[in-house]
Design a protein around this nucleic acid. Structure first.
Lengths: 106, 106
DNA sequence: CTTTCGTATCAAGATTCGTTGATGTAAGTT
DNA sequence: AACTTACATCAACGAATCTTGATACGAAAG
């Protein structure tokens, strides 16, 4: 297994923060099937348009989605590299639990 | 590769929420080396004791750490199963990007 | 039993985040 | 040009979260 590059903790916290909202997770879930325009997401999630825009902005700021303008429409898609960062951060934490290394001071 | 079990979105959001704080990520990082008592964490992180306790409580509520009382001291350790849930949630999102499935309506 | 040590809890204030409704803007239509 | 469509931004508010300092609690020590 290849060593996962270690992500700065501030960056990891920001990505997890973007992932910490149900509605944003649902948005990402819809994007797994491929690019979607905002109007499709609005309909699928039944959210006020400005709220959806707010969450998309958060996901974009965290590097989890990309947007692409096509005439009137803006299409959003997953950015796998953003999700990989989150996985790398988790991989740095998921390890064999060490049995209780010779208690230092307590 | 085994299919990752799919985690309820509300649960995933809660775990990511617990991971969305720098201080909590640092705590988890310290626990990778094995169990630590609160006093060790306090010293290592240079945080007010009550603040550390607050964050440990959040991590415990999210199922990311376990605690064990030993006399005066309370030792915290990673709970790998909690972290695995986060990884499973990410695995459900990290997929080959689909090339733009025949634009539905937009 | 009193004191001390390690940790948890609480109340209050500060900060951040999510939601709503209104307005702005860019692109296309007539 | 005026209008519409699709989306973004803004201000305002409430709700959740973080932080601090004080207090409470459980376990050991004296």
């Amino acid at each position: 297994m290849v060593l996962a590059p270690s992500i700065p903790v501030a960056r990891a916290a920001a990505v997890f923060q973007a992932l910490s909202d149900e509605k944003r997770l649902r948005i990402l879930g819809l994007l797994v099937g491929g690019e979607q325009c905002v109007c499709e997401l609005t309909e699928a999630l039944d959210l006020p348009q400005s709220l959806l825009s707010f969450h998309l902005k958060a996901l974009k700021a965290a590097g989890l989605v990309a947007d692409r303008r096509d005439g009137r429409w803006v299409h959003y898609s997953l950015r796998p590299s953003g999700l990989e960062e989150a996985k790398d951060a988790l991989d740095a934490l998921v390890v064999e639990p060490i049995p209780r290394a010779k208690a230092a001071r307590c």
